[in-house]
């Protein structure tokens, strides 16, 4: 291995860095290199098997009228109906409600928990005794590491309608009015999901705050900042990239998450009250009433989600200047 700095670049360029010394702007050298491609193979196989092929399949199925009534596993036998499913989808009277539900769910959960609360907890725990902060952060990780079903069952016991439910028991004991889960359904959907999603941002933000040099933190105090001024003028501006990263990553992960809602409310109560887009895809394709699974129509929902996801991902990569973030492989600098 040579020691000269090599051009960083695209994924391909990274692989090629070991064999090229060109400093040219992020272009891999013209000659394809077998070793480089071999190193890329595991990743390529995974992406093709678990993302590309399923996406193409879903894309195709979304253009068929495959249901449990005309089920076939043979792709050639499926009836191609073009964009009919999408036309139905865009005229679906509930699609709009579900879209707004999804936007509401993603934005509110992210603002309050995945970004807001995680930032708050990170700032708090980096300003207190180290051991205590470790305990707090460990506690906040519990929802993430608890099995989803167990976690949701605990919540359901917690917020069950009166006279049951730990929350209502407690409220009753202090003379409060009992609440019903259906009244505050969105509140609970957001809290339940938020407490899981929060730990991600917390870990990232805490690491980012801890990595700000002690000298800078001390300089800010000596220069005359209060703790709050230091957070506002020094720490938060330095968290710009972690913030953007968490926001973008969490929008994508919230957009596609539905397991907790499925287990907690199953989209109800009432008609689509807490139904989100990803859950609809699941309901239509795999869990429709009377066992009538509309694979074709459900796939159309999934395709819309994939398109939104890919567009957002592309946007974020631009905002991040992703190529600038691709670091020099460490082995070169050893």
């Amino acid at each position: 291995m040579h020691c000269a700095p090599t051009a960083t670049g695209t994924f391909l360029g990274m692989g090629m860095a070991a064999v090229t010394t060109t400093q040219s702007k992020r272009t891999s050298s013209g000659r394809p290199n077998l070793t480089a491609y071999l190193f890329l193979m595991p990743a390529v196989v995974l992406v093709v098997l678990f993302f590309l092929i399923p996406t193409i399949l879903v894309l195709y199925i979304s253009m068929t009228n495959l249901t449990s009534a005309n089920f076939t596993a043979d792709i050639a036998q499926m009836e191609f109906i073009g964009f009919a499913n999408f036309t139905t989808l865009f005229n679906d009277q509930f699609a709009q409600k579900i879209l707004f539900n999804t936007l509401f769910y993603v934005l509110v959960t992210m603002a309050i928990f995945n970004v807001g609360a995680s930032l708050f907890v990170s700032l708090l725990t980096t300003h207190i005794n180290r051991r205590a902060s470790f305990v707090f952060r460990a506690l906040w990780l519990l929802p993430r590491i608890t099995a989803g079903t167990v976690y949701i069952m605990m919540w359901r016991r917690m917020i069950a309608d009166p006279p049951f439910g730990i929350l209502n028991q407690a409220l009753g004991a202090v003379g409060g009015t009992p609440i019903t889960g259906s009244e505050y359904v969105w509140t609970f959907v957001v809290i339940v999901n938020g407490m899981i999603g929060m730990s991600f941002g917390m870990v990232i933000f805490t690491a980012a705050i801890e990595s700000i040099s002690k000298d800078i933190m001390n300089a800010a105090l000596v220069d005359g900042s209060t703790m709050l001024q230091r957070i506002r003028y020094i720490i938060l501006p330095l968290l710009r990239w972690p913030l953007l990263f968490v926001i973008s990553y969490q929008t994508l992960s919230l957009l596609t998450s539905y397991e907790q809602i499925l287990l907690l409310t199953n989209g109800g109560p009432g008609l689509y009250q807490t139904e989100v887009w990803a859950l609809t895809a699941y309901h239509r394709a795999l869990s429709n009433y009377f066992g009538n699974a509309q694979w074709g129509y459900g796939s159309a929902f999934a395709v819309v989600l994939v398109v939104i996801g890919v567009l957002l991902a592309a946007l974020y990569m631009r905002v991040f200047r992703f190529r600038d973030l691709v670091a020099e492989p460490k082995i070169e600098t050893l």
């Binding site: 000298d215 800078i216 001390n218 300089a219 000596v222 005359g224």
Partner: peptide, 18 residues
């Protein structure tokens, strides 16, 4: 520290990068 009217210079310079 803010009420001591001191100035401090650090080994790492500790300038605010943003």
């Amino acid at each position: 520290p803010r009420d001591r009217n001191i100035g401090m210079v650090f080994q790492s310079y500790a300038l605010y990068p943003h």
